[in-house]
Design a binder for these strands. Sequence first.
DNA 1: ACCGTTGCTGAGGATGTGCTGAGGGTTTCG
DNA 2: CGAAACCCTCAGCACATCCTCAGCAACGGT
Lengths: 220, 220
Amino acid sequence: MRPRVLVVEDAEPIRTAVGIALTEAGHDVRTRADGAGFERELAEYRPDLVLLDVMLPGRDGFELLTVARETSNAGVILLTARDGVDDRLHGLRTGADDYVVKPFVLAELIARVEAVLRRMGRLRSVLAVGDLEVDVEARAVRRGGAEIELTATEFKLLAFLAGRAEKVVGKTQLLTAVWGYDDYADNLVEVYVSGLRRKLEAHGPRLLHTVRGSGYVLRS
Amino acid sequence: MRPRVLVVEDAEPIRTAVGIALTEAGHDVRTRADGAGFERELAEYRPDLVLLDVMLPGRDGFELLTVARETSNAGVILLTARDGVDDRLHGLRTGADDYVVKPFVLAELIARVEAVLRRMGRLRSVLAVGDLEVDVEARAVRRGGAEIELTATEFKLLAFLAGRAEKVVGKTQLLTAVWGYDDYADNLVEVYVSGLRRKLEAHGPRLLHTVRGSGYVLRS
DNA sequence: ACCGTTGCTGAGGATGTGCTGAGGGTTTCG
DNA sequence: CGAAACCCTCAGCACATCCTCAGCAACGGT
């Protein structure tokens, strides 16, 4: 489930740019030009995070911040052209989770958005290859909705391969990365690839391909 | 109970000034000049918030940040003279809760400290996992309406796990976070997990799952 | 088509990892 | 001061997982 972000910003170019950047970063985004119907939007869309411009026509960002705090538990980031310490203090005291000053680099805004989401526990680092998802923190693997149970070694192997999806990985490389050996040992890798395939292919077509003479690739 | 703040900063004047300012603002403060014995300090003092200078003799702030994230639930604010966007991004990506650039106005630092504390209170006062509720402040645990009585150690363990719901937590990590040990000691963790399960599962299905070879997860 | 090389897979014993009941030392509380 | 609760250690059991082995299949160059 992707995190939902609500953006309220009157300047059209910024609103669009932020919307696109956040969407590309893998979030679900909804944008608005002013604070009209803000309460309804909060209730319906249930965002995990709200990005609020401070200077808005009608109700300003501080007012909306208060509303958001009272009626939801979304995180809030304020967005403003002003740079005085007083405004920053005001924003933080009112309870914003973060504060970004215009003009800002888009990459930093994204980083702050994700920092707040991560802190709230709404962001996971998930590696995806085709319909396969590898959640490293939860140590969980899903394919097409189904949860796949892996042993410790199988998971290490898959995580390593998923981390370099589309790239061919040699057996020696796998042995050092997963087992810590520095020389070749029997057919260890083959045995584990075999086991991994059996579990993975119970829920779909082959993802872990053999590249004869070189190693293995993970791709769809 | 006043919030505890741990300050790690090598420059003496700043360390003192920050210490005094935070104390006057009503916090319990402890200061250190470097990262030596940081793990022990975390385990003993159990700060709610850690202020870390990025440029420290010995281990730098980023390193300490990682340690703090792994073994405590404390919030973290980075404190630095550098102002490059790259450093800010690095700090936020690594998971800092906030980032203050020197030179800073003391009032702003205090405001940020309190913003982070407030945010943590809002997010962490009652942790919920499935039908389980862990109220950290009241030191109470409920499941499906029934109150569950836990010993001090059991509660610490559960609270730590609940703070990282859905994430796999290693035994070593638990030992440092809950017991303050830095190396593996017998099967302490297993014994307490066992006891915790008995109490938790008297009111519902398993929530505290074993992930063989990795650790434990709390999820429904 | 042949044959050496490379890769696949099922089986099984050794090992590792986790679970639990019991008990002694210590602290807390009445 | 005594009892209860609690913390930690220990030891035995259960079983999942790891790795080796051996035979078979697939591939590709000649």
